[in-house]
């Protein structure tokens, strides 16, 4: 069994995994939206996706805590192969989650609301960013539970202030400018650009999300035995 298949099974074995991937995205569709704006579920899906990404990073974090990485270091498997297999497995599950949400949205809100293919690209980029962010975040802690406890607070605040939980326009101007440094802001920015049909802003959001992904991957991929 390859590491990819093993990682896939490990992720699916988690209690909430299937619920978060297949059921919760559908529940989000029933949250009421504000008039003249994109549905609230589009933003809230960012919050769900971020937590799901954190859940998917659990096998990597636990491998480090249980010293499995030490055994892997002594085996002929390279750290790069191990990491790529795990990230690919997690990314696949997150992409499935995005696809489920996109298909359900298209059926629920109608196919003409937005360009769903671009929305799928945006969510996928955000998913990978969330996964790499979780990877970098976990490297700061020895215990996954501590890491998750702190992340649940920080993640919620990040999503709240960056316009995923409620519209960014309701926040003061200074805060709106400051939150640009948060990676979650760029999903909200991308969604706004998609709603306003602004391809340049959307492209910028995607590029910034991928740049954040690169930065977090560089921080989180360092082998810590």
């Amino acid at each position: 069994m390859s590491i990819f298949i093993f990682a896939l099974k490990e992720n699916l074995r988690q209690r909430l995994a299937l619920l978060m991937i297949l059921v919760f995205p559908l529940v989000l569709l029933f949250i009421p939206s504000m008039d003249g704006m994109l549905p609230m579920s589009f933003g809230l899906f960012g919050l769900l996706n971020l937590y799901c990404a954190f859940l998917m990073s659990r096998p990597i974090a636990e491998d480090r805590m249980r010293k499995v990485v030490v055994r892997i270091a002594a085996s002929p498997v390279s750290h790069f192969y191990y990491l790529v297999s795990h990230l690919a497995a997690a990314s696949l599950l997150l992409s499935i989650q995005c696809l489920v949400f996109i298909i359900a949205s298209a059926l629920f809100y109608g196919f003409s609301l937005v360009n769903y293919f671009v929305l799928f690209l945006l969510y996928c980029s955000y998913s990978v960013m969330g996964l790499s962010f979780a990877l970098a975040w976990n490297t700061m802690f020895r215990s996954y539970n501590t890491s998750f406890a702190l992340f649940s607070g920080v993640g919620s605040i990040m999503c709240l202030v960056s316009g995923l939980s409620f519209p960014l326009s309701l926040l003061p101007m200074t805060v709106q400018q400051s939150v640009r440094v948060l990676p979650t802001y760029w999903l909200a920015h991308g969604l706004a650009a998609l709603g306003a049909s602004s391809p340049s802003s959307l492209l910028l959001s995607l590029v910034i999300l991928w740049t954040f992904t690169g930065i977090f991957l560089l921080l989180g991929s360092k082998r810590r035995l």
Binding site: L204, I208, T211, I215
Partner: peptide, 15 residues
């Protein structure tokens, strides 16, 4: 946003 992108790229380059 463009300034931020360039700043992030600089961070990436150093990392």
């Amino acid at each position: 946003p463009l300034h931020l992108l360039v700043f992030l790229l600089v961070v990436f380059s150093h990392l």
